[in-house]
Nucleic acid binder design. Structure first.
Lengths: 154, 154
DNA sequence: TTACGTGCAAACGTTTTGCACAAAC
DNA sequence: GTTTGTGCAAAACGTTTGCACGTAA
């Protein structure tokens, strides 16, 4: 079985997984929307697309796809899992008002991990770790919520 | 009701909350250990200290204390909530082998948020946000696990 | 024919809630 | 006496698993 779209098929098989119908729909959805979906949201979006899927199948395939590196998995500040198709190194902007999450692509390659200025006493401990990845999460207020708040207080 | 220890009482009341027995025990535990406990771990530690607590009380007070800013709440990469008493700006080192989490204090004040190098096209979007906090999570292998892995492969 | 993917339902662990009682303001 | 905190039990929630069936290698 292959997806209707070659780039989706290739993306899955390139990581050693079979391009099954469920996986194709999941990856296509993430590629099309560039969203950070929770499993529940994906279920609803897939239903809306006329591609309904069992919740068990969704979870099973999200696990496989993220373990294989086809899609990215992370846990939002609210504690629920989210998935995206962005494999480029990027940071997250999280709106503390509406919860929206937006990507900001990092300028450098993932391997060139930017050092953080740390306390002198903690530097030796940091040096003893083998650091593989750095994830930055900015929290603040998104443009839309800033406007809404200003309007409300006016 | 006040805690036995004045600094614990003060820390709670300073944020507008009553210093009840349950809250005193929670805050004292976090101050004493500097750990990043999950609710389950805290429950066990409190039991060990001879200060058992109902799980409902624990969750209710963790929510109140973290909302009030007395303690910090965050969600680990595994998706479970963790709490600490460290209010200084700091980053997290997460061991991908054993899951241990260690603090590395930031060198600068929380307000002086270090900029991250981002893609030129994304810079305008970032500029429109009102950024309030930056959280960095380093993922890698802790010293202990490095040693264990080397021993295993030798 | 053997392994893998899918879907239903049940199980699981974590977190929240309804309620009764006790304590503090 | 009204508000607030505590604890038990039950519920809700997100996630995982067991099993039967269908599909692909």
């Amino acid at each position: 079985m292959t997806c209707e779209r070659p780039e989706v098929t290739e993306r899955i098989t390139a990581h050693g997984l079979r391009a099954t119908p469920a996986r194709c729909r999941i990856v296509a959805l993430l590629l099309d929307t560039h969203e950070h979906y929770t499993p529940e949201e994906m279920l609803e979006e897939l239903r809306r697309r006329g591609e309904p899927m069992s919740i068990a199948t969704l979870y099973q395939n999200l696990a496989k796809l993220s373990e294989a590196g086809v899609i990215g998995r992370f846990v939002g500040p609210d504690g629920v899992s989210r998935y995206d198709a962005v494999t480029d190194p990027h940071h997250h902007l999280v709106c503390e008002v509406c919860g929206r999450m937006v990507d900001v692509r990092a300028a450098g390659p993932l391997e060139a991990i930017q050092p953080e200025p740390v306390f002198e006493e903690d530097a030796p401990e940091l040096a003893r770790w083998r650091i593989k990845a750095k994830k930055v999460e900015f929290t603040g207020v998104c443009p839309a919520c800033q406007a809404r708040l200003e309007r409300a207080s006016a």
